[in-house]
Amino acid sequence: MLKIDNLTANVADKPILKGLSLTINPGEIHAIMGPNGAGKSTLGYTLGGRPGYEVTGGSVDFAGQDLLELEPHERAAAGLFLGFQYPVEIPGVSFVQFLREAANAQRKGRGEEPLSGGEFLKLAKEKAGLLRMDMDMLKRPVNVGFSGGEKKRAEMVQMGILNPKLAILDETDSGLDIDALRICGEGINAIMRAPDKAVLLITHYQRLLDYVKPDFVHVLAAGRIVKSGGPDLALRLEEEGYEAVVQEAA
């Protein structure tokens, strides 16, 4: 589904990703862990096509397409979803208005019929319900005045509505209270656990992985994947810290 080969990328002319390779197959859940500043969010933004994240080498194949050739909205229509570490506030634009336009723009990009207002609201209600989010919150301006945890939950509602093939979730667990963590974990499973879908979880803690069990865990340090393993690698990291694991890999 996703094949990243020797990817290098600069942010503000500074090399951040330094030859990163990673392959994700349909049906798999991968977790990326790594120290602050290692380049985890940079990887997410680079895959999402954020302006200012300049690819200087390597390749990314997404479901048979050259991902790096696509504009951000085309990546979304192709089935990529980026859950933001810091979701952006957009005053004056309501979630429902924005998400309906987004869902229909994606459908148009794929040559599908648009959703009517009623169909969209039904879908939004269902996904908000899944994440136990009050529909009234979706009538508010995008993320404005939302608490940190509410923003993360709203990201998952968006994922539910947009129904991507591959979700890259950047620290979705940070800011969530204990109950919200479980609800979001179960939401991710409900929305993304399928033979034709895949998830890349970026996280610092085992707690999310207790709910969303990864098939593979990778350590990203200084712009590269320095170690990969099974679910037990996350447990080992939690006990021993990055330093020991990163040094051992070097």
Partner: peptide, 25 residues
């Protein structure tokens, strides 16, 4: 706001749609 525009586009809005939505607001 460039961050806002990217956020909207990352959800599938075309650049003109994203800009129009923000300008409407």
């Amino acid at each position: 706001d460039a961050q806002g525009l990217f956020y909207l586009m990352s959800r599938g809005l075309t650049p003109p749609q994203a800009k129009r939505l923000m300008l409407q607001a």
